[in-house]
């Protein structure tokens, strides 16, 4: 475990989701009536079967998907009017640099600093220092000028994490960040997250259907399959659900609607 859970109070909420439902134009909602409170400093794993709505939950919270009903508050402020967005970092599923042209580690991490800088002109010295610090924190110093696509899958994940860290976020949303990465790299990545959580107090929501690597680091596990099916400490998870990728075997059938891509 990274850290002892902080005492929950109303004031230290990082995220509150109330009565959230999402439909993709079908009769069956992808998520229905989700209620979730995440306190600052928590390291939360969100697990569940593919198509169960984990990614949708994250995207709805971040405003990338419009919910049918319900509300989201970030740090006590309704998400729509939450202005301190630089505090949020989001690593999407199957992350890749969006560009075909060669792009270096430093260029990607520098892009992540943008929320904390002015939008125009060259990077100022304190921002450069923050970029260097983020690269150093994920252990990629010496590789700054390397092209991202020439790095291993595990190293690329660390580049994307450094990109988030460059903005010094306090709340990270990571959507299956280690998919396709080997077990060693997954373990290193989990330890890195643990350091961020315990050392810097960063709140982390980690979505995965194969969350083995982070299972022992998290305070709390939330199982999502159309709604929240379990919310508690990982060791309290009922035995038959222990493989979260097979939640539906425990009496919660997967949705029949055709799942949209990247759900």
């Amino acid at each position: 475990m990274c850290r002892v859970s902080t005492q929950a109070t109303d004031r230290d909420e990082a995220l509150r989701v109330t009565g959230l439902s999402v439909t993709y134009g079908t009769a069956t909602p992808v998520l229905s009536d989700v209620n979730l409170v995440v306190h600052q400093g928590e390291f939360l794993a969100i697990a569940g079967p593919n198509g169960g709505g984990k990614t949708t939950l994250l995207r709805a919270v971040l405003g990338l998907v419009k919910p049918a009903s319900g509300s989201v508050a970030l740090y006590g402020v309704p998400a729509d009017s939450f202005r301190d967005r630089a505090r949020i970092g989001y690593l999407r599923q199957r992350s890749d640099v969006g560009v075909e042209a060669p792009v270096t580690v430093r260029e990607v991490v520098t892009a992540g600093r943008l929320p904390r800088t002015r939008r125009f002109g060259p990077l100022r010295t304190p921002d450069r220092t923050a970029v260097d610090a983020a690269i150093h924190r994920v252990g990629l110093e010496g590789l700054e000028s390397m092209r991202v696509r020439r790095l291993s899958g595990g190293q690329q994940q660390r580049v994307f994490l450094a990109k988030l860290l460059a903005a010094e976020p306090t709340l990270l949303f990571l959507d299956e960040p280690t998919t396709g990465v080997d077990a060693d790299a997954q373990e290193q990545f989990a330890e890195l997250l643990c350091e961020l959580n315990s050392g810097l107090g960063v709140t982390i929501l980690y979505v995965s259907h194969e969350f083995g690597a982070v299972e022992r680091h998290v305070d709390r596990l939330v199982l999502v399959n159309g709604g929240i099916r379990f919310d508690g400490a990982p060791h309290d998870l009922p035995g038959q659900w222990h493989d979260p990728s097979h939640t539906h075997a425990a009496g919660h059938p997967p949705h029949k609607s055709t799942p949209p891509k990247d759900r």
């Binding site: 971040l62 405003g63 990338l64 202005r83 967005r85 630089a86 949020i88 970092g89 989001y90 690593l91 999407r92 992350s95 640099v97 969006g98 560009v99 792009v103 260029e107 990607v108 892009a111 992540g112 943008l114 929320p115 939008r119 990109k163 988030l164 903005a167 949303f173």
Partner: peptide, 15 residues
């Protein structure tokens, strides 16, 4: 370039 590299990531952080 930040938008080109990761459009959604940029949108989420208020760019």
């Amino acid at each position: 370039t930040a938008v080109a590299i990761d459009e959604e990531g940029a949108a989420v952080t208020g760019i």
